[in-house]
Amino acid sequence: MEPRKIQSKKRYLWAFIIGTAIFVIGFAFTNMVAYLQFQRVASLQDPTSYQIFQDKLQYSLFGEDICAENTYIKISQDLTFQGQVIGDLENKLGLDNKNVLFRKRFYTLIQLEHFEFVKLINEECNKNINSILFFYSNKKTDLENSEKLGNILGPIYQRNKENLVLYSLDLNLDSDIMRNLREKYDVGEESVVIVNEEHRLTKINHVSEVEQYLE
């Protein structure tokens, strides 16, 4: 038989150019969405911290009643969302991404500010808002246990979100405040869950193991 000719070399060239362009555009699109998500976190962090700051000052300077409304619930929802988005961004952009790390440090500060505010509400308003400090690790040696704890804490938060606030803190975060926190709560290199500042758990096999400490 006579060798067949390739019908159109141009078709290959166009397929390569268009296919490659779509491939690149696809990745660019997902990075654009990640950027939007990053902006979203940034746009939420400022008002959240401002709100906490304002509420605390209103109370300390002018003695404003902080018991009247459950403002902390709205702020808590914002905080949970921010934490989830920062987790998504870590997965997408990497644990070492400077912008994400900055947002994470800021997020840690807001969480601690909120934690202090909730303690104040508990004291002043005779309330029992529970708190869970979840020190997690992204290091390979503890990643599996950390993920397991995180997976179980999610549903615990959903079941008790009316009077529970969950604070997720990266124990490997390079910041002075994290070093001090680890010292205060005696946190080593492994993930730890601290319920109401009293009960330490390093392994959780059932929701009841945490819920028994909730008030």
Binding site: F29, L36, Q37, Q84, G154, Y157, Q158, I204, V207
Partner: peptide, 28 residues
Amino acid sequence: SINFDFTSMIGIGSYFFERVLFKIFMNP
């Protein structure tokens, strides 16, 4: 470990759909 409480896994809050959309369109 969660007593097959599926509703607690989903947690439809005010940001649920926003996050789902982010997660979908951030994954190539």
